[in-house]
Design a protein around this nucleic acid. Structure first.
Lengths: 214, 214
DNA sequence: AATATCCGGAACTGTTTAGTTTCGTATAGA
DNA sequence: TCTATACGAAACTAAACAGTTCCGGATATT
């Protein structure tokens, strides 16, 4: 329950006696295992033995590298693979709707669902640990929001939508509605859900949908 | 960690030997205490001793009435005071914006914040317990969403907005964005936040905001 | 082959906490 | 006053789990 100091030093160091490297080669597997267990059972349900077993490692190996369960979790989240929403690889179809729809790939939905499970597992911890909250935000949720912001800004730049739009809120909309849908409504987040959100809320809100004039 | 059967029988029963009533008079205080502790520490951080101490009760008293921690929590959530969003006491200002803004009372914000803290404390448990998820949805989140739905439907009925609007999604929008803002962004949910949401997203989405033509 | 290092496994310690039991007391009906 | 019941407090049991220690084997450098 205690996770205070930050200790994200890098892996490879020099041994005191020999010029040989300290490997810590199992780090990636362990961090992956930690994320999996986290997604399945949540922070409090997760035990170090589960992580060790999942990674086919010994508990001692975990503690050789991380001083506590909390530090391991922070490290796992912070080093999590971000969604591949590079500015350069974003869709560019010429219309906002085209871009937004192009973002809905099966892989992206799958990945997003896993990240939301991780997020839920972290929730109670997040509200008590700003460091973890920031790591989770930066890795789990910000890449996607930032991609949306770029798509919206492009639409503004090409004159498709008004510059008065609340881009910041609109960029977070799909993520926030998805979290709500999964955990509060307990309904699936699938392609149809996102399409309906785009056509029923986002596009109308920027003046492109039905209500304003189809 | 186990919370299966439902045991929401009512409180006052008749003793086997006498016509006297079994009081369980401490029930309300205990349930309140459970909610407070839940909001402060989350389900896993909450201990039965904390709840007992908060209610100035003995641990034995808790177990006389509820078979387990999980059952106590479900009971506390299910019997939680709903927001007072009666169909009859909703604002009716004549415009959608007026109605939505009138919903933002300091008390409602305060109450909503507490409920969100409780929600966060339940998160990891919710994803593993449908019964709890349903109780939380019905009590914490549905009253508000349903109020929004009514206000939107009224606006449709009086011809202020189009019937094509995605009322269901729009009614959940403020809640879902508020959850996101508190837990992911760690920023305060205050009056300004809601006003900006109304003017920047909801009203535009129904064809009343700037982008469509101010 | 000799040696130094990392690793996995298993046994161990100490703490926390769910849940139980016991007991002394307050209260309300008879 | 007498008695049954509900209660608060505290001691208790049993299990789970974070974190530690030890050991034997694998690997790689010399």
């Amino acid at each position: 329950m205690t996770l205070n100091a930050s200790q994200l030093d890098t892996i490879t160091e020099v041994s005191p006696k020999l010029g040989r490297k300290r490997d810590h080669t199992r780090d990636p597997e362990i961090l992956d295992a930690a994320l999996e267990v986290l997604a399945e059972t949540g922070y409090d349900g997760m035990t170090m033995e589960m992580v060790a077993a999942r990674a086919k490692a010994g508990k001692a190996t975990l503690y050789r590298r991380w001083p506590s369960k909390g530090e391991l979790v922070i490290d796992a989240v912070a080093n999590m693979k971000r969604g591949d929403f590079d500015r350069d690889h974003l869709p560019d179809t010429g219309t906002l709707r085209g871009d937004l729809v192009a973002m809905i790939k099966p892989h992206a939905i799958e990945d997003g669902a896993r990240k939301m499970r991780i997020m839920a597992g972290l929730m109670s911890m997040i509200s008590r640990n700003p460091e973890l909250a920031e790591a989770a935000r930066a890795v789990i949720v910000e890449p996607r929001a930032s991609a949306n912001r770029i798509l919206l800004q492009r639409a503004v730049d090409r004159g498709e939508i008004s510059a008065d739009c609340d881009i910041d809120n609109l960029a977070m909309l799909s993520q926030s509605m998805a979290i709500y849908r999964v955990f509060v409504l307990q309904k699936p987040v699938n392609r149809d859900f996102f399409i309906r959100l785009i056509d029923g809320v986002v596009l109308p809100a920027v003046g492109l949908g039905h209500p304003a004039g189809d």
